[in-house]
Amino acid sequence: MRIPCPLCGARPLEEFVYRGDATVTRPEEGAPMEEWVSYVYLRNNPKGAHREHWRHVAGCGSWLIVDRNTLTHEITRVAEVRPSGDAR
């Protein structure tokens, strides 16, 4: 598998680390415990389209949002989570 890093180009899987679901958002300060528990522990395990966090750890170090099909491994979109440089 190769991931097209927006900064480095298509790079092999070995250069990246996977974190997980990119659709969860950290609750606001003071949010009830249930929201935090669900943020940290509860995940869907979709078959098909998924939005994920990957880090190009052996490259630019960017955290990326990767739209990946968990069934086919097809990657449809990759973006920096925090746009760098001119993109900001």
């Binding site: 680390v17 974190r19 950290r26 966090h53 880090r55 750890v57 170090g61 960017s62 955290w63 920096e80 989570v81 925090r82």
Partner: peptide, 13 residues
Amino acid sequence: LSHIEFCHQVLWP
């Protein structure tokens, strides 16, 4: 390092 980069880039960009 990976964790605080995550904190910076993802949690508090």
